[in-house]
């Protein structure tokens, strides 16, 4: 009995040791992954900062002004002027879309279109 307990506990210790060993390696692996991801995030952030700077550089007022001048023939852009403001009242109220002509003009004839075996439950129809 004592021998059996001995063997059992030794095996338990070995099993736990193996488990701890594998957990340790899994943790190391996960940490490595986190570090890689963080590097990637840092790199992407840097890239984003460069892109933002470039976007700001491309959108600088000087350049836009030159582009507007170069493309005046095509776009005809002019600086915003007071005349370009409008009031809501100056806009015509949109006309409602004309309603489509109904196919069936006489409501009574609707029942005639229904198939003969359609059962209309009048009880249900009533509110």
């Amino acid at each position: 009995m004592r021998t059996f307990a001995f063997v059992l506990s030794i095996m338990a210790v070995m099993g736990l040791a193996f488990w701890a060993y594998s957990e340790n390696y899994k943790t190391q692996h996960a940490l490595g992954e986190v570090e890689d991801l963080r590097h990637e995030i840092g790199y992407l952030r840097e890239t984003r900062a460069v892109l933002k700077a470039e976007w700001a550089y491309l959108n600088r007022p000087d350049r836009l002004r030159d582009l507007v001048g170069m493309n005046f023939q095509k776009l005809g852009l002019v600086p915003l002027s007071p005349q370009q403001f409008g009031r809501v009242e100056q806009i015509a109220y949109p006309q409602p879309e004309p309603e489509p002509e109904p196919d069936i003009l006489n409501p009574v004839s609707v029942s005639a279109i229904l198939p003969a075996d359609t059962h209309i439950d009048t009880e249900e129809l009533e509110p």
Binding site: E46, A49, V50, K52, A53, A56, N59
Partner: peptide, 19 residues
């Protein structure tokens, strides 16, 4: 970045960093 950006009132960049 080691130095923050400077932006205008609409968030357009006035000063930023470049590596």
């Amino acid at each position: 970045a080691q130095r923050a950006d400077i932006v205008d009132r609409n968030g357009k960049i006035l000063a930023t960093n470049l590596r």
